[in-house]
């Protein structure tokens, strides 16, 4: 089973990188761009067929290592 984890900064935590990207996009003429927040995507392959178990395991991985829950939140997406 494949999984994709999205890690982003929590709302309210300043994201200077996202701010700079937004600023740059405005500068390039993309005037419609409002707030920008950036984050990371982690693709994983799991030897697990049970979606429930996989999700629980992924949640543990996020809490323990993949995200720093002091400043980051995460979303898990299972694929097939």
């Amino acid at each position: 089973m494949k999984a994709r984890v999205f890690v982003t900064l929590k709302n309210g935590v300043l994201d200077p990188q996202g701010k700079a990207i937004g600023h740059a996009l405005n500068g390039l003429g993309f005037g419609s761009v409002g707030e920008v927040r950036q984050g990371k995507v982690i693709d994983l392959e799991l030897n697990e067929t049970d979606a429930g178990k996989a999700k629980a395991e992924l949640k543990a991985m996020c809490d323990k290592l993949l995200a720093n829950t002091v400043i980051e939140k995460y979303e898990i997406e299972l694929k097939g």
Binding site: V13, L14, P16, Q17, A20, N68, V70, I71
Partner: peptide, 17 residues
């Protein structure tokens, strides 16, 4: 130390990037 919970808070990317 912050990642392991021995100290509170987190260290983020420098504001100047």
């Amino acid at each position: 130390l912050t990642e392991s919970g021995l100290l509170p808070g987190a260290l983020m990317r420098n504001a100047g990037l």
